[in-house]
Amino acid sequence: MLTDDTITDPPPTTDPDLRRFVEQSTSMTGFATYDLYGTGMAQLYLDTARHQVGGAARFKAFLDAWQQSSDGDGTAALTPVDREIARAVTYLWYTGAWPRLAPAAHAALRREMPNTEFVASASSYPEGLVWRAFAGHPAGAKPPGFGTWAEEPPELPTEEEIREELLAVAVEDPSVETAAKATTYAATAFAADLPGDGVPAHLLPGVRLSRGMTPSAVPAAAPQPGTRTEEASE
Rank of each mutant, 00 (worst) to 15 (best):
M1Y: 13
M1F: 14
T3F: 08
P10D: 02
T14Q: 10
P16D: 15
L18D: 02
R20Y: 09
V22G: 00
E23F: 08
Q24E: 10
Q24W: 02
F31H: 12
A32H: 11
T33G: 04
Y34A: 15
T39K: 02
G40Q: 02
G40C: 06
A42K: 03
Q43S: 13
L44A: 15
L44G: 01
V53T: 06
A56I: 08
A56P: 03
A57F: 08
A57L: 11
A57R: 14
F59Y: 13
A61Y: 04
L63T: 05
D64K: 07
S69M: 03
S70M: 14
S70I: 11
D71C: 12
D73T: 09
A77T: 11
L78R: 03
D82G: 07
D82T: 05
R83L: 15
R83W: 09
R87Y: 04
L92I: 00
W93D: 00
W98I: 00
R100L: 05
A102E: 11
A104V: 06
A104G: 00
A107R: 14
A108M: 09
L109K: 03
E112P: 01
T116N: 04
E117S: 15
S123M: 14
Y125I: 15
E127H: 03
V130M: 09
R132C: 06
A135D: 10
G136N: 04
G136T: 09
H137K: 13
H137T: 15
G140E: 01
P143S: 01
P144F: 13
E160P: 06
E161A: 13
R163Q: 12
E164H: 10
V171S: 10
D173W: 05
D173Q: 03
P174M: 00
P174E: 04
S175G: 07
T178V: 14
A180G: 13
T183A: 10
A186S: 12
A186E: 01
D193R: 07
P195V: 07
P200V: 03
L203R: 12
L203T: 04
R208C: 11
R208E: 13
L209D: 14
G212S: 03
M213P: 01
A217P: 02
V218Y: 04
P219T: 07
P219L: 06
A222N: 15
A232P: 03
E234F: 10
